[in-house]
C-alpha cells in the first residue's frame, strides 16, 4: 500500500517555548482507521488541527493525498472532513439551514439531496427543521457529523467524536467509520473512550508529550486489558 492519504514527517508545533508536537511522523492509508490516544495535553488536538488546516506547523512536512500543507491548504480543504471540540454550528439557524450553508460553502451540486443524505446517515432527518440551539449536545454532535460528511471527503479527522453521543449514536458513528473504510477513505480520530475507539480502529497511535510513543497495529493487542497494559507501560 504505497499510496497515503495522510502523510506527516517530522512535524513540530511550538507554542511559545513549549513543544506541543515534536518530530511526529505518521502515515494513514486509504481504508485505514487510526485512533490517536494519549493523556490530556499529549498533542492529539494540535495534530488534528494542523492536519485540518486550522493551525500551521512550526516545522516538518505534511500532505493530504498529494497536496502539501500548509502551502496548498485551500485545495486540501475540499478533501478533509473535520469534527472538533466545538460544533461549528450557528445557533440561530436550523440544522437544515446549517447544513445547506456549509454545502454551499463546499460548492456542492444538488444541495438539498446532499443534506438529506448526510442527515439520514447520522439519523437526524426528522430534526432538520429544529434550531441548532434547541438540540441536545448529542444531536448537535450528529449535525456536526453530517456537516463533516456533506462533501464526501477522502480524509476524516475527528477530535473526541464520541463526546455527547448516546449508545445508538456512537454505534452509528462506528458504522460511518466502517463505511468510510469500505469506500477507501482515511480516518484519524482521537479518543479517551479506549474501549470503543480500539474496537473500531485498525491501528492505535499512543501520543505522549507531543511525540508518538507507540504505533500499535491491531494484531499487537487482543483485548482491551492487553492494550491497557501496553498503554500503561508506555506512559510510565
Amino acid at each position: 500500500m504505497n499510496e497515503t492519504l495522510i502523510a506527516v514527517e517530522n512535524l513540530d508545533k511550538i507554542f511559545g517555548a513549549r513543544y506541543a508536537l515534536r518530530g511526529v511522523s505518521l502515515r494513514v492509508h486509504p481504508g485505514e482507521i487510526v485512533a490517536l490516544v494519549g493523556p490530556n495535553g499529549a498533542g492529539k488536538t494540535t495534530l488534528l488541527r494542523i492536519l485540518a488546516t486550522l493551525s500551521r506547523p512550526s516545522a516538518g512536512a505534511l500532505s493530504i493525498g498529494r497536496i502539501p500543507l500548509p502551502q496548498h491548504a485551500a485545495s486540501a480543504r475540499a478533501a478533509i472532513g473535520f469534527v472538533g471540540h466545538q460544533t461549528f454550528l450557528y445557533d440561530n439557524l436550523t440544522a437544515r439551514e446549517n447544513l445547506e450553508f456549509f454545502a454551499t460553502m463546499y460548492h456542492l451540486p444538488d444541495v438539498a439531496a446532499r443534506v438529506r443524505d448526510a442527515a439520514q446517515r447520522v439519523g437526524i432527518e426528522n430534526r432538520l427543521n429544529d434550531l441548532a440551539r434547541t438540540l441536545s449536545r448529542g444531536l448537535q454532535q450528529r449535525v456536526t457529523l453530517a456537516r463533516m460528511l456533506l462533501h464526501s471527503p477522502a480524509v476524516l479527522l475527528l477530535d473526541e467524536p464520541y463526546t455527547g453521543l448516546d449508545q445508538p449514536s456512537a454505534n452509528r458513528l462506528d458504522e460511518i467509520f466502517r463505511v468510510a473504510q469500505r469506500e477507501g477513505r482515511a480516518v484519524l480520530f482521537s479518543t479517551h473512550d479506549l474501549e470503543r475507539g480500539l474496537a473500531v480502529c485498525d491501528r492505535a497511535l499512543i501520543l505522549q508529550n507531543g511525540r508518538i510513543a507507540h504505533d500499535l497495529p491491531r494484531g499487537d493487542w487482543k483485548t482491551l486489558a492487553g492494550f491497557m497494559e501496553i498503554y500503561a507501560r508506555v506512559l510510565n
Binding site: 485540518a52 486550522l54 485551500a74 480543504r77 466545538q86 461549528f88 454550528l89 450557528y90 445557533d91 460553502m105
Partner: peptide, 14 residues
Amino acid sequence: DKGSLEGLLLTPVD
C-alpha cells in the same frame, strides 16, 4: 464563540 468561524475556515472558501 461557537467556533463557527473555524467551521467556515475549514471549507475551501476564499
